[in-house]
Amino acid sequence: MADEALNLSEKKAEFREKIKELLPEGNLNLCFTCGTCAAGCPATGLENMDPRKFVRMIALGLDEEVLTTPWIWMCSLCMRCIYACPMKVDIPNMVGLARRTWPREKRPKGIIDSCDMALRNDTCSAMGANEEDFQFVVEDVAEEVREEQKGWEDLQAPVNKKGAEFFLNQNSREPVTEPDEMIPLWKILHLAGADWTYGTKGWAAENYCLFAQDLENWEKIVRVKAKAVDDLGCKVWLNTE
């Protein structure tokens, strides 16, 4: 703790001004320090930080502390704080803006790598699974169920079925590491009589570019996926993530 009082007149508060400009609905000035946000935030106390403190530090212009603390990566952007806040102070978006001020190479490598990997092909898979591999795994697993499970001789796991009602996304973890976990989902869709399909393009549910706050590439990925849904003429885009 500083033993001298902070001299706020020396602070430039550039981040505060940036928030006011980019997040005019963020209600930064409405915070009355009640602490409701901090009381219900599981990230409270990590890195000696909490959401109320974060907001106060922005308001006081303590830019250096606010923009260097790794705490912004320990907030899960869960939105419980803004949900509970009587003044609807938009803390999660302020955390997002703080993430964006970090140089890309300084942001957590695992998140950046997952974002980059998803940009490598049109599947958008953060684990790098390509179109052929995905289709092969799905068809192979479905075939095995049809052959080996009594009563499931008709089970379908359609890929690229034009005009299906539902376009289903799938988290990469299943096709890549535990494909059998997809079967219960297919069975439920079958029993419900759903008209659904996967697409070889845009099937991966995850989008780490959002968490990396690489918004340009986040949008790129969303557009690849939306186009895949449109190209198959599906009505509903279902994301199981």
Partner: peptide
């Protein structure tokens, strides 16, 4: 009103495992 589990926002890939 539920608490987040702590897996969201990229946490699982962030490398901040102890946190």
């Amino acid at each position: 009103n539920n608490y987040c589990c702590g897996g969201g926002g990229g946490y699982l890939q962030s490398g901040y495992t102890e946190a």
